[in-house]
Amino acid sequence: MRRLPWMLACLVAAGWLPALPSARGLESSDRSTIPFHTILELEQTARLLAILLDSGRAVVNDNQTLLDDPTKAHKGFTPEAFEGQLRDMFRGRSGINLEELAGGTLSPRSRHLLQELVTVSKQVIADAQAELNRQGAGFKGFIPAVFGARVSTRFTAVTGVRLKQTTLDPRNPANRPDSYERVALEAFADSAYPREKVISEMAANSSSLRLMFPLYATRQCLDCHGGPKGGLDRTGYPREGLTLGQNAGAISVLLPVGK
Rank of each mutant, 00 (worst) to 15 (best):
Q135K: 12
Q135P: 02
Q135Y: 11
Q135H: 14
G136S: 00
A137L: 13
G141R: 07
G141W: 14
G141I: 08
G141F: 07
I143F: 14
P144R: 04
A145E: 13
V146M: 09
F147T: 00
F147H: 10
F147K: 06
G148V: 01
A149I: 02
V151M: 07
V151G: 00
T153D: 13
F155K: 03
F155N: 01
A157F: 01
V158T: 09
T159M: 05
V161T: 03
K164D: 00
Q165T: 10
Q165E: 14
T166C: 01
T166W: 04
D169P: 00
P170Y: 02
R171D: 13
N172W: 06
N172Q: 03
P173H: 08
P173F: 11
A174S: 07
N175T: 02
N175K: 02
P177K: 04
D178C: 05
Y180F: 14
Y180D: 09
R182Q: 14
R182P: 09
A187G: 09
A187V: 12
F188T: 07
F188M: 03
D190S: 09
D190T: 06
Y193D: 06
Y193S: 04
Y193R: 14
P194E: 09
P194C: 09
E196L: 15
K197I: 12
V198D: 12
M202D: 04
N205L: 07
S208H: 12
R210D: 12
P214W: 08
L215I: 04
L215F: 08
Y216V: 02
A217T: 10
T218A: 12
R219H: 10
R219K: 13
R219G: 05
R219C: 09
C221K: 05
C221F: 10
L222A: 08
D223Q: 15
D223A: 15
C224A: 00
G226P: 00
G227E: 11
P228D: 10
P228H: 09
K229W: 09
K229N: 06
G230H: 02
L232H: 04
G236C: 01
Y237K: 04
Y237R: 01
R239P: 03
R239I: 01
G241T: 04
L242C: 01
L242H: 12
L242R: 10
L244R: 12
N247Q: 12
N247V: 03
G249P: 08
A250I: 07
I251Q: 06
V253N: 08
V253W: 10
V253Q: 05
